[in-house]
Design a binder for these strands. Structure first.
Lengths: 210, 210
DNA sequence: CACCCTATACTGAATATTGCAGTAGAGTCA
DNA sequence: TGACTCTACTGCAATATTCAGTATAGGGTG
């Protein structure tokens, strides 16, 4: 049986449509550019182009780069067709995996310091990526986009990321302020403050901007 | 070799610390309450409590519920200890998997309609969950929290979700407006509008509120 | 009252993905 | 010349998801 095309396969195929890449480049480019939309392991990204070759969606040839060989992958006409068909298929629902929030939900098993540390790690991860995307945008202004004809897409995606990161950072600040008012992580229950927040949320209002 | 404790194992163990559950309840409760912090498959959530029993962190006994048997799991003292230790370990970085954004990044392989459909599916998924969390908050006001002493934690988490959903919904609206101005998905590159956006983002400013 | 549908209550097996260790050449700096 | 980093992967074990399958209980409908 031939291998199945997964969303990750199409992601790699879409990169291949831009230009031929070596396995190494493909893997690292995919990790850089897709990290915040479709994060996948190096290992998987090395395997995907092989699957594409098996399916006839790409061809491979070995190239010499100073003694070593590397596999160069090129998309085929069938590959382009498959990509075109993919665009009209159903989109999987989003999936947000945030361990820091899991730790918040169960923060009553640990100390306030534990919770604040988990939030600090979360803030630091987000802060790094926030800074990286801002710097990337600055580099685009200097003509740094590797595929200039696709800038409009990258920038719309970057807008999403920056909005997201700003929101998360604002929430973390808010959460820290709230936690600072807690005497402990446990058994607070429905305090007047919690009731105020619940009331706002039940009316779909943001408790942050007040 | 004994099984390894993963983050998912601790998530289930933390639920078990609230009260004994059957495998079925545990699985469905975890999917309901942790969906937006730690989404895991039903299958995995059925396996985790068995692992906990093997490690001595829980005990199990069969109960009769009208002819059928079900496995009831209860946390042990060792389980509680393990939970306490977990709170001081390092938190994994967040991971956002959003296929709609992948499709945006490669939207030049399809039509504007394809892209708008992917965004519509995204909006509808987010909208559903947004509505669900608002309704959940309303139910808390009527004394509906299953573990009242933990309300302060749930509400802080809910604040995160609502902020997130609102941000995503605002971005989707923004993206639709932008895409409406595109004659096509392809080869637009650095238009004056895209340059304006890039300049804002490079200064870490939001293009949405103007 | 037979049939259908939904909820309860799971398990096995195939597939997908990750993590980690291992291999090996090229370039650089001390 | 040795250590370290970057390039350029592969194999294998462990982990997680998907899908199908099994089976009972209870409620509503024709």
């Amino acid at each position: 049986m031939p291998p199945r095309m997964t969303t990750s396969s199409y992601a790699v195929l879409a990169l291949l449509d831009l230009k031929p890449w070596t396995g190494y480049e493909l893997t690292h480019q995919a990790q850089r550019s897709l990290r915040y939309a479709w994060p996948k392991s190096e290992r998987l990204l090395y395997s995907e182009p092989k699957k594409l070759v098996e399916l006839g969606y790409a061809t491979t040839h070995q190239e010499d780069s100073g003694g070593r060989t590397r596999n160069v992958y090129t998309i085929t006409a069938e590959g382009r067709d498959a990509l075109g068909m993919w665009t009209s298929t159903q989109t999987q629902p989003p999936r947000l995996e945030i361990e820091a929030l899991l730790r918040l939900l169960f923060a009553d098993h640990g100390s306030r310091e534990d919770l604040l540390r988990a939030l600090a790690e979360f803030a630091s991860d987000i802060g790094e990526h926030h800074q990286a995307i801002v710097e990337l945008m600055a580099s685009y202004l200097d003509g740094g986009h590797p595929f200039p004809q696709r800038t409009h897409l990258s920038v719309l995606f970057a807008t999403f990321q920056i909005e997201m990161f700003k929101t998360i950072e604002r929430w973390i600040e808010f959460a820290r302020d709230e936690i600072d008012e807690w005497p402990t992580t446990q058994d607070l229950g429905m305090t007047p403050r919690t009731e105020t927040l619940t009331r706002l949320l039940a009316q779909d209002q943001s408790p942050l901007n007040q």
